[in-house]
């Protein structure tokens, strides 16, 4: 563990792995809830946790290095389920990078048990870990100018869901109707650091098995409807 001062009232605590960062984050939350740590912001990230708004950062820095950090505690609560249509335009590229047939990508992705490592980029955007290392993928060489809201995407070791339409360079593998961020809702963010997440493939009815004439338009699979988003 390395503790770096950040200005006059913050510390950046750097650890060796993403798992260690999640364990440190859980311990910091526990101490804040117990009333033994006073801090305005606890911001976990890939390999660090930032503590901002500290009265005595150097005193805490001295104590921090002596802490025994228990491993990430298993979460008692159920995983947040995010229904996904695995219909992203980058599925073939991801399948090629993984060395599996395209239809295997949803199975592998939905089988993983995810955890929100940290949030950033936009309100409600979580960086989720849980896929084995061999499924890391690079960002796209050329970022898209618009990624639709609800896009489920991969980059590096992370899975993310775009809370709103924005430019983005992640590999798009699917879409969800889950609302990731709604500031009128309490809590506004669906995903918060430390939360467990599972992606649930939505029922997919192959089109050749649907008697098209007899089925009203709204019952057709969503994949056939181009997504128009703001």
């Amino acid at each position: 563990m390395r503790v770096l001062p950040v200005g006059d009232e913050a510390l950046l605590v750097e650890v060796s792995s993403g798992e260690a960062a999640q364990a440190l984050h859980a311990e910091l939350l526990r101490r804040r809830a117990a009333g033994t740590l006073t801090v305005r912001e606890i911001v976990p990230a890939a390999r660090t946790v930032l503590l901002d708004g500290l009265r005595d950062p150097s005193g805490l820095a001295d104590r921090l290095v002596t802490w025994k950090i228990p491993p990430v505690p298993p979460r008692a609560e159920d995983a947040i389920e995010i229904p996904v249509r695995y219909d992203g335009p980058d599925l073939p590229d991801v399948a090629a990078l993984w060395g599996v047939p395209v239809e295997e990508v949803p199975r592998i992705h939905a089988a993983a048990d995810f955890r929100v490592a940290f949030c950033g980029f936009a309100p409600g955007f979580g960086y989720l870990t849980g896929l084995p290392d061999r499924y890391d993928v690079p960002r796209r060489a050329t970022p898209r100018t618009t990624v639709p809201a609800g896009s489920v995407a991969l980059a590096g070791p992370y899975t993310g869901v775009y809370p709103r339409s924005s430019p983005g360079g992640w590999q798009l593998i699917g879409t969800t109707d889950s609302v990731l961020w709604d500031h009128a809702r309490v809590p506004a963010a669906l995903l918060t650091p430390g939360a467990r997440v599972r992606f649930v493939p939505q029922e997919f009815v192959p089109q050749e098995f649907v008697p098209q004439e007899s089925v009203p338009q709204e019952f057709l699979p969503q994949e056939s409807v181009p997504q128009e988003r703001p």
Binding site: L12, E41, V43, P44, A45, L50, F118, G120, Y127
Partner: peptide, 27 residues
């Protein structure tokens, strides 16, 4: 990616320092 504070002087690849003000990204 790591947490960012108000007043952080971030240096992007072009080498020109940027001082983060109130609407700065959190990471």
């Amino acid at each position: 990616s790591e947490g960012m504070v108000l007043g952080a002087v971030q240096v992007p690849p072009d080498g020109r320092p940027v001082v983060f003000l109130a609407d700065h990204p959190t990471t």
